[in-house]
Nucleic acid binder design. Structure first.
Lengths: 145, 145
DNA sequence: ATAAAGATGCAATTGATTTGCATTTGCATT
DNA sequence: AATGCAAATGCAAATCAATTGCATCTTTAT
């Protein structure tokens, strides 16, 4: 997804394009794991020449807009209980989190195909989404006793 | 589970029994939905004659101990992004949360039987637990437009 | 090029959770 | 039942993520 595509997406959603929003979007789009707000902040700060910082509250405000426009999903991964943000993809993803080192590994495929529908039938809730995370100890950390 | 059972459980775990711990445990044990720390605090404050308040930081410290002893599980339900605490049961539970009114409904049965094992095989993580929550709109709130 | 609407930066605030410390309580022992 | 001590509690202050008010700067439509 190049800069033009992103510009078009923003226009389609009626979101004003700014340098900050572009950079936050690109960062999330290029990450294959959810990111915390302050990770985003630091990633965008450490960048090369000419690049200005993006203020942390601006990061939060941008994320809020992306969420409202369903471009980003907010979650709380249990590893550190900070909120994390992830680009909405056509195929949603779940993650495996190491409780020791906090490594996050995306899982392929969703084991809950059809489950939302079943829950809808038994509860009459209108189902919007589900969140799943698996907690464990990664191979590395298993060796650390 | 009566007071004697709880006392025995504490003894078995090597946890000193105090009035505050007993009351927090009973409250969680009698709830069929996860509770936030401040809900616990308020529940225990509003109680009848003779009952003293349990300080909020004490509530947090008690929950910490229960978690360490695997008597309680901490989660972040997405509805309001506060931490919630739930008694560990032989059959773990997942919940359906209304994004409008925050109603929490326990779901019966776990749709992930065998999935942990499968993830273990493909990733070599030692799997400890999984957390699942379904977000939706409850029948009541669907009518509110 | 210009103006209006909206976005950003900065500092201060909020709200949940944690921590230090003085006091109190539970429990093993006498 | 009384005693001693380790551990638990209450209270106030601190911490940390997240939010907000406001003055200034950018974007976009004209």
């Amino acid at each position: 997804m190049n800069q033009g595509d992103i510009r078009a997406l923003f226009k389609r959603k009626g979101i004003k394009m700014t340098m900050q929003r572009l950079r936050v979007y690109e960062l999330l789009n290029n990450s294959n794991v959810p990111l915390t707000a302050d990770t985003i902040y630091f990633e965008l700060s450490g960048s090369a020449e000419g690049e200005e910082k993006v203020n942390l509250s601006t990061v939060y405000r941008i994320l809020e807009i992306f969420i409202k426009n369903q471009m980003v999903t907010k979650s709380n991964l249990s590893a550190d209980f900070k909120s994390t943000f992830e680009i909405t993809r056509s195929e949603h993803r779940h993650h495996l989190i190491c409780v020791k080192c906090h490594l996050v590994t995306p899982l392929s495929g969703c084991p809950l195909k059809g489950y939302d529908q079943k829950v809808h039938q038994s509860t009459r809730y209108e189902i919007l989404e589900h969140k799943l995370e698996i907690l464990g100890i990664c191979p590395e950390c298993q060796h650390l006793k």
